[in-house]
Design a protein around this nucleic acid. Structure first.
Length: 246
DNA sequence: GTTGAGCGTT
């Protein structure tokens, strides 16, 4: 009786998705199921959880089979206190896969060539970014995200620096990457010490185009405290220096 | 152990 979201989306077709916000972090679908099921036929309930920790994010998705019931639940459960916290029930706006959502109702893409031209299969212009960029849900998450990035930012940082040397970055991303990869490969087989990082001798041409706008990109680096090339990794440097495994 | 605006999974 509580295997919601256990096997992915069961069947989303003509279903009304309700978004429940403001729920406690301990509230589970099982707790909302009887609550929402009382007002109508709940087809599925899904609560997004963290992939690393598995903690609830604080909101759940309740899928109803009928709009009248969903609306009723929204009107009845919206503003109620659950588990000691007031929950907010409203129709979901963005679908999991950019599905056609109308007032919370998820309708299949193109059931049949009716009046619309099935030719235009381009339908990825729904929920492009909207507010995805400001996804800073909570400070705690920000922290973890930052930490996470820190862990695997080694390559990114190096790459970033490399790009910094590039005066133009709007020329061609794909090509740039290709060039980088190519160079990387070449360097890889040429020499192994990648951390050696040869002095970033700036080419004359590069230097010239270094400040095409008069604004030094390096200035921005100051914000994050430009890391001295000498102390690249004062933390893991010790362990690397020595070979305890040997 | 913490948190609190938001939009989702095989």
């Amino acid at each position: 009786m509580s295997h919601f979201g256990r096997s992915g989306p069961p069947d989303i077709t003509d279903t009304y998705s309700l978004l429940v916000l403001n729920i406690t972090f301990r509230t589970t679908a099982d707790d909302l199921f009887p609550l929402f099921d009382k007002y109508g036929k709940v087809v599925d309930i899904f609560i997004p959880k963290d992939r690393r920790t598995g903690d609830s994010r604080g909101f759940a998705f309740v899928r109803y089979k009928y709009a009248d019931e969903a609306q009723k639940a929204v009107d009845r459960l919206d503003g109620t206190v659950v588990d000691g916290r007031e929950i907010t029930v409203q129709f979901a706006k963005y679908g999991p896969n950019a599905e056609r959502i109308q007032k919370g109702r998820i309708i299949e893409s193109f059931p049949r060539s009716r009046s619309r031209s099935p030719r235009r299969r381009h339908r990825d212009d729904h929920y492009k970014d909207r507010d995805y960029r400001r996804r800073s849900r909570s400070r705690s998450y920000d922290r973890y995200e930052r930490d996470r990035y820190r862990g695997k930012d080694r390559d990114s940082q190096r790459r970033s620096r490399s790009r910094s040397a590039s005066p133009v970055r709007s020329k061609g991303r794909g090509r740039d990457r290709y060039d980088e990869d190519r160079r990387n490969s070449s360097r890889s087989r040429s020499v192994s010490p990648d951390r050696h990082s040869p002095s970033p001798q700036k080419s004359p041409s590069l230097h010239k185009a270094s400040s095409p706008r008069g604004e030094s990109p390096d200035r921005r680096s100051r914000d994050g405290r430009s890391p001295s090339p000498r102390s690249v990794s004062p933390r893991g440097r010790r362990a690397d220096s020595r070979s305890p495994s040997s």
